[in-house]
Amino acid sequence: MGHEGVREKARNDLRARFTALLHHITPALLVESFHALRHNAAAGVDGRTWREYETMLAQRVPILHREIHAGAYRAQPSRRVYIPKADGKLRPLGIAAIEDKIVQQAVVTVLTAIYEADFLGFSYGFRPGRSQHDALDALSMGIKGRMSTAI
């Protein structure tokens, strides 16, 4: 059962408990996760850009997969930088290595398949394919709908 199977199980059986998920982190999911990253992002803490890593993807994915499943994978320490905000304060930003981003994206994909089933239709925060603009559009439609029924 891939992450789509996990999604179906979570949707159809609300009492299901997912206790073993590591086997869902497959080489195919790692490749999919790599392609989901921003292609034009700045280099990670390891100095590698998306384009540079793409040239070694076929060689690195099996090794990365093996390290994850053997418990040997260790994320590299992120580099902390501070970006100035308009109000003069500084916003902390962590710069991760590209392989760490790939693993993080793969884990997000598996966990999203499970937890997305628990969200209500009007929930917009930090959900795939939904933004604050979508929430405002839904709110606007709800208000207009109530106003038209009140008239």
Rank of each mutant, 00 (worst) to 15 (best):
G71H: 12
E67R: 14
V6I: 14
R130W: 00
D137I: 13
L21Y: 04
D137K: 12
E4N: 14
A58W: 03
H39A: 15
T49L: 07
L21P: 09
L139E: 08
Q105R: 15
K85H: 13
L22C: 05
L139K: 15
K101N: 04
V110N: 01
H24S: 06
A106Q: 01
S140D: 11
I98A: 01
A20T: 13
L120I: 14
R15S: 15
G129C: 07
Q105L: 02
L64S: 12
R48D: 09
Q76Y: 04
H24F: 14
L14K: 15
R7L: 02
T149S: 08
R127V: 03
L29Q: 12
Q76T: 13
N12C: 13
R38G: 15
A97E: 02
V81R: 03
I114H: 01
R91D: 10
V107K: 04
S33F: 08
D13W: 11
A70Y: 09
R80Y: 05
A10M: 03
V108R: 13
L29G: 05
N40Q: 11
A20K: 10
I98C: 10
F18C: 10
G142N: 14
A117Q: 07
D118R: 10
H39P: 00
A43C: 05
Q76H: 03
R11G: 03
R146E: 08
G121R: 13
R74K: 11
M1P: 09
A28K: 15
R80P: 08
Q104W: 07
A113I: 03
H133C: 07
A72F: 11
Y53K: 01
D118V: 12
